[in-house]
Design a protein around this nucleic acid. Structure first.
Lengths: 207, 207
DNA sequence: CCTACCGATCGGTAGG
DNA sequence: CCTACCGATCGGTAGG
């Protein structure tokens, strides 16, 4: 292992001088943590990994977060909030159900597979079980609200005759097909989230 | 933490006296490891957890496996072999494509959700990334062979007109819908793997 | 397979 | 936010 080069001490106040600075440093930690949690998993990621990634000493993340768990909680909540916001927009559009559905698929996949969202989304999907019970409940509540967006559009699709079954089971299959993309999607591959969304809609819906 | 009660030393040979005994002890470790890997993840599971689960001292698993990685490798390979064997049977039957497909879905889900297979299957699906590169290649090779079973039946379903697209993307959506069941399936819930398989077939196939 | 142990690493804290 | 540190725990090994 290469030893980390020690930062030269700088003679400025170590205290965050205004909120923007604190928020910045804190969100740097969240971003770095998300990436590491996705790459190595929560348990295999150490506080030192996270600190190193943003050029802090190993004790310093605890100035921003009270525990490693607290970092995970922040990342996971950020993840579900981001996905919800991304999908709520097309869900509220006045498109026909079929087009709206496809736009929602695209939005969901854009977060999961895109550069800005994939770390926190993967953390949400795969590391939430490491949250304590309370935080897990929080995540579940938000996830239920999110899935409500999907249940609503599925219902409309059934009314339109594009779907024969809009039960919770259908929604779960849909979530599975979408969320599993994180396991096989290659950024260097030919398919865009948009194209994947279109194919999935074609597979699920009838004319 | 409650201290583990120390086993009273027994005055029999500590050496495995015949192969059946060794195989047994080793496979007990594999089963315990699978369960723990599913419940807590590979990184959060310690050798001591695994040893405790089968009433060994913490150094003893290394008599059967050369490293923690080696245990994971064994569980993961066991997982993919089990799933392949379970699905290969209905895949080789002389049923019509549609019925064969549904039987394959049921077989896959029975392993993922059933008492005997779920631990190793979940370990395979969610912990394989912790394998070293060589073992990961091994798993990928076996998984590709396994997915060949599915690609073949999808092709037949397309020929039959039950499917409009039998591309790799369709197979990946299918895998997602199935494998995601491990995230939401409740053993105490009302739905059986059989019923889930039937619903999934209905969602994907056209008359 | 147990006993006894090791060096490394971990999450977290006190004090500035 | 750094320095310096702590107690606990980890994967793994020697020797029987």
């Amino acid at each position: 292992m290469a030893r980390v080069v020690k930062k030269a001490p700088v003679s400025v106040s170590p205290e965050p001088t205004f909120q923007g600075e604190e928020t910045n440093r804190r969100s740097e930690l969240v971003r770095a943590a998300g990436r590491l949690f996705r790459e190595k998993g929560y348990s295999a990621t150490t506080i030192r990994d996270i600190a190193d990634a943003v050029n802090m000493r190993s004790g310093s993340p605890f100035y921003h977060f009270k525990s490693k768990q607290d970092i995970l909680r922040t990342v996971a909540l950020d993840g579900i909030a981001t996905i919800h916001a991304a999908v709520a927009k097309p869900a509220a559009s006045n498109k026909a159900p079929r087009a709206r559905f496809e736009a929602m698929l695209t939005a969901h996949l854009n977060v999961l597979l895109g550069d800005e969202g994939r770390d926190i989304a993967a953390t949400l999907l795969h590391e939430s079980r490491h949250l304590d019970a309370e935080a897990q409940d929080e995540v579940i509540r938000l996830k239920d609200a999110y899935e409500g967006l999907w249940q609503a559009v599925l219902k409309e699709l059934k009314t339109d005759g594009a779907l024969t079954d809009d039960s919770a089971l259908t929604r779960l299959f849909l979530m599975g097909a979408m969320n599993w993309t994180t396991q096989w999607y290659r950024h260097d591959g030919g398919r865009s989230p948009r194209q994947i969304a279109r194919q999935l809609a074609k597979l699920l819906l009838r004319d």
